[in-house]
Every structure is written in structure tokens, then in C-alpha cells.
């Protein structure tokens, strides 16, 4: 699998990563190499094999009781935010 510049631009857009012009060919090259490398997986016989999403096969989801245990700490939590006003996180205008 060899990726084109255009492929990498699309992936970067989907992942919301600004990639500058100079870096782009480096990613085209390394991502292509990585994809070629992982294509070894095609050697494996995987018919009728159940995909493994999780290392501990027998575990199932635990469920918690429906209880409110939280206090309002928004001021503390918002100290890490670049822009906050009136308790709201600010972002460039959302256009629907």
C-alpha cells in the first residue's frame, strides 16, 4: 500500500492535524512504509477467527448504581482552559 500526498492530506484532515508542506513528504513515506509493514497480517489464516477487542475474554461490563456523587468543581476544572467566560468554554463561532 503506497499512499499519495493527497491521501495523507485527507487523513490529516480527518484527524484534524495541520501538517506543513515540508513535513508532508516525510509522512507520505513513513506512513506508506508502515502500511506495507502491517500488510504481513495478510499471511495469517483468519477465517472463522473471532476478533479480539479486549485481552481478558471472560470479563463483562460492570454496572454502577444510579447515584449522583459529584459536586460542582467547574472553576477548578476550567483553570486548564485557554478561554473561558461566564462558566462557558469559548471556541471560534460554531456554524451549523
Amino acid at each position: 500500500m503506497s499512499l499519495t500526498r493527497h491521501d495523507v492530506e485527507n487523513i490529516a484532515m480527518l484527524a484534524r492535524l495541520a501538517i506543513n508542506e515540508a513535513e508532508l513528504p516525510v509522512y507520505v513515506d513513513s506512513l506508506s512504509k508502515i502500511l506495507n509493514f502491517v500488510e504481513q497480517l495478510n499471511q495469517a489464516e483468519t477465517d472463522n477467527v473471532e476478533p479480539m477487542a479486549h485481552p481478558l475474554a471472560d470479563q463483562v461490563q460492570r454496572m454502577r448504581a444510579d447515584e449522583v456523587l459529584e459536586q460542582d468543581h467547574h472553576e477548578k476544572y476550567q483553570r486548564n482552559a485557554a478561554r473561558v467566560e461566564a462558566g462557558l468554554y469559548l471556541v471560534p463561532k460554531v456554524i451549523e
Binding site: 468554554y89 463561532k93 460554531v94
Partner: peptide, 11 residues
């Protein structure tokens, strides 16, 4: 979408 200096607020 009230105007916060041209920005949107997220709740």
C-alpha cells in the same frame, strides 16, 4: 451562540 466577542460558548 450568544456573542462572546464573536465566539461561541460551550456548556
Amino acid at each position: 451562540h450568544e456573542d462572546f466577542q464573536g465566539l461561541s460558548g460551550i456548556d
